[in-house]
Design a protein around this nucleic acid. Structure first.
Lengths: 201, 201
DNA sequence: TGTACATCAGTGAACGCGCGTTCACTGATGTAC
DNA sequence: TGTACATCAGTGAACGCGCGTTCACTGATGTAC
């Protein structure tokens, strides 16, 4: 299903750390975030179940690495999405929202993992810093749009409103609640409507 | 820790079904929604690990029953919250939002379970019907406030916006993202601001 | 009111399973001379 | 260029664990006569 087996029977695998993370990611998407295991990921990467422990201390460490990588990817996508749009435009805000929702739809398992790491990772500095980086992009775009500093409480409040909304919509979509309610949602209109409303409070 | 052991060594327990659900609920809150087990819940209810299977087919069936019960409780709380407020008032909408968030904060484990039952329960009619009942309350309040029928697309759209927002905020709160962002959120102001904005689009 | 019996709701032992992790090991690689 | 050796990154067997579920069983309850 994947070209994970390209490792031509080398004893030294070369890039196990990365391939392991990718295998776990793959399993999270296919099996669900509750039904994957490191053992299975090892098998998928074509390696013994003990191999991961040469690269990571334990399972939580693997998940943390995966989440960090995921958040960086998210940041990158968001920055790319606004790159060609004028600073201070509402378009930027809508593009960020759309990117967020798209990400959730493309990688629902990872999306849930990123926000569900409540177990051993509560209060982890590296993780919350990565989170601040992502949210910082939204705050900046909101501040630019309002014509204030990013540190202004107004910018933070509005940005948080936008984030909450887009976050909730993402979960409702990937958890199938939109269909379950027999609703059809015009997403572009929805995102546009919300950002308009929030910005002109 | 609880008065679950009031079953005075009766062989026939009397109310195992209910006590089992309550034990599972308790574990979900204390251990997290990923780390509870039916076995442990049986122990907590003072019963052998085989006993649950006299009342439920399997684990998914237990979870489904628990979620249904939870959604009914949610409905009841929401209806109670608006009972004394005038029909068609914006206060009703804010009260519903506040109730939703309060529920998530009080029972984060159950809240996550209700929306995370993506595994074996996708497309379950009973469950999505229960969901429609809860969301229906929001739609009705929104329609009343806008002065339209509940079936009007406008009502559904606005209600969905409100729901998304409140849903996202709930998750961000229980997943600790609000603190992680070092934000302090004035929740009343937040809910009020959002509903005002959404209603006057 | 008393007895016979079907049904109900538990027990407790056992099952197979896959997990996370450890351990002593070994083959491949890189470096020093 | 060749050899000796330290280090690295794997193996594979084993561990203890708790899980979900089954099974034959048994004690308590309700009903019919």
């Amino acid at each position: 299903m994947r070209v994970l087996i390209e490792a031509k029977s080398r004893y030294h695998h070369g890039d196990l750390r990365a391939q392991l993370l990718s295998a776990v990611q793959q399993l999270i998407e296919t099996k669900g975030h509750a039904n994957f295991s490191i053992s299975e990921a090892s098998r998928l990467a074509g390696v013994s179940s003990a191999a991961p422990y040469k690269h990571f201390a334990d399972k939580p460490a693997i998940l943390k690495a995966l989440v960090l990588e995921c958040m960086e990817r998210m940041s990158a996508k968001m920055l790319a999405a606004i790159a060609d749009l004028p600073v201070g435009s509402k378009e930027r805000i809508d593009a960020l929202g759309q990117t967020y929702v798209d990400f959730a739809r493309e990688e629902p398992g990872m999306f849930r993992l990123v926000f569900g790491l409540t177990e051993a990772h509560q209060g982890d500095d590296e993780l919350s810093q990565a989170g601040q980086q992502v949210f910082g992009i939204v705050i900046q775009a909101t501040a630019d749009c309002l014509g204030v500093e990013a540190s202004a409480p107004e910018a933070q409040e509005r940005a948080y409103m936008l984030w909450s909304f887009v976050h909730g919509h993402s979960f409702l979509v990937i958890d199938g609640k939109v269909e379950a309610q027999k609703m059809s949602v015009d997403e572009t209109k929805l995102l546009n409507g919300i950002s308009t409303a929030v910005l002109q409070i």
